[in-house]
């Protein structure tokens, strides 16, 4: 297999190309900006430490996405243990959301990331399945349930057109 980038090169490449992607995913999966920033930084530290070789930029991107989601999960677990009170009502649950971003963030983790990867990053269900380690059909059902949930929450729904 071809080695596209590795170590410090992979870091520089990822920093230029994918910092925003990592930050956006982090923001989708954490409670606040400061946590998202912490996670983003941790992802890059992980990248440096792993010294992993990547076949192409897609390989690198997929790795970053997976690591970001995992680190966010760790972060949320930790912060829910540390600050129970703060996390009771993180997303104004119950009210009709005017902010589409808040609505997406309020979705269960799987739906949320599938929606982000499909609608923003343009991945197909099959590709998302590969990144998140799930079957294509599972991803399709996450997407449709996510869409349904958003339609209920948002004025005008969340349609493909």
């Amino acid at each position: 297999m071809t080695v596209f980038v590795k170590g410090k090169d992979a870091f520089s490449f990822a920093f230029k190309q994918f910092t925003d992607t990592v930050y956006r995913i982090a923001l989708h999966n954490t409670a606040n900006f400061s946590d998202a920033e912490d996670v983003t930084q941790e992802v890059f530290i992980k990248l440096l430490e792993s010294n992993k070789a990547f076949h192409d930029s897609e390989h690198l991107k997929a790795w970053l996405i997976r690591v970001t989601i995992n680190l966010c999960r760790d972060k949320m677990k930790k912060s829910s243990r540390e600050t129970l009170v703060e996390n009771v009502l993180p997303y104004n649950r119950g009210e009709e959301k005017t902010d589409v971003l808040e609505a997406v963030k309020a979705l269960p983790e799987k739906y949320r990331n599938a929606v982000y990867l499909h609608y923003y990053e343009g991945y197909t269900a099959k590709e998302i399945g590969k990144i998140l380690d799930a079957k294509e059909n599972t991803v399709l059902s996450w997407l449709s349930r996510g869409r349904d949930a958003l339609r209920k929450e948002l004025d005008g729904g969340f349609d493909d057109e």
Binding site: R24, T40, Y116, F158, D159
Partner: peptide
């Protein structure tokens, strides 16, 4: 509101310079 609003919203998320 549709997916274009979502894309716009995500577009606005940019990693801060300090980060």
């Amino acid at each position: 509101m549709n997916k274009n609003d979502y894309i716009k919203a995500v577009d606005n998320i940019i990693a801060p310079q300090e980060l």
